[in-house]
């Protein structure tokens, strides 16, 4: 085995253990942390495939931002485990169908790979030391795939605006700070200096 293979199998093993941990951990915080571990390990697998941009972005976005907010919410939940178990049998068939679908999708990807796609794209794996994955991705995204990329960006922006407008409620009579007014305050408005004669 080469060093790359040893690394691949080690990190894949940890990835699988972490993924199993996500669904078997009783404590939701532990489950979320297993998910973080899984993300980190898949990032390493991507690094092994010389996709350093995707690997780092996976850590940056999912580990650094999404999972932090996830933990933020999960930590504040007061979860009753017995209550969570209640619907297990009722939702089990649906869960099994979803799981089978996912397995079928993965299997189909593996099968497609057998069709000789790796021969069609040998250049990706034969990159020299000066090859920058980030630059290559950037050039493709901003030239060949510019319109799909901008469309995706617009969709995301739309989703952000929609999410904010859906959740933002202005209560009547809620007190709010007007920072501009606070900054514009002058001492004369607040303090009245009174000259008093000393009492005798």
């Amino acid at each position: 085995m080469t060093l790359t293979e040893i690394l691949f199998y080690t990190f894949s093993a940890v990835l699988i253990v972490a993924a199993v941990g996500v669904i078997t951990a009783r404590n939701p915080v532990h489950a979320a942390l297993f998910l973080v571990l899984a993300f980190c390990n898949s990032a390493v697998l991507w690094l092994l495939m010389e996709a350093e941009f995707l690997a780092i972005v996976l850590v940056l976005v999912y580990v650094g931002a999404v999972m932090v907010l996830f933990l933020f919410v999960v930590m504040m939940l007061d979860i009753n485990i017995a209550q969570m178990r209640e619907g297990f049998t009722r939702y089990a068939p649906l869960g099994i169908i979803v799981a089978l679908l996912v397995i079928a999708e993965i299997a189909s990807v593996v099968w497609v790979k057998r069709l000789g796609l790796e021969e069609a794209a040998p250049a990706v794996f034969a990159a020299g030391p000066d090859y920058s994955n980030t630059r290559a991705l950037g050039e493709l995204l901003y030239s060949k795939y510019l319109y799909p990329f901008e469309l995706a960006a617009m969709l995301l922006l739309l989703a952000i605006v929609a999410a904010i407008t859906l959740t933002m409620r202005r209560r009547r009579g809620a007190k709010q700070q007007d920072v501009a007014a606070q900054v514009a305050v002058r001492p004369q408005d607040r303090v009245r200096l009174v000259k008093m004669q000393p009492e005798k």
Binding site: I56, L60, V63, T134
Partner: peptide, 9 residues
């Protein structure tokens, strides 16, 4: 190459 991204991550 992607040192800055690495730092951010």
């Amino acid at each position: 190459n992607a040192g800055l991204l690495y730092i951010l991550a």
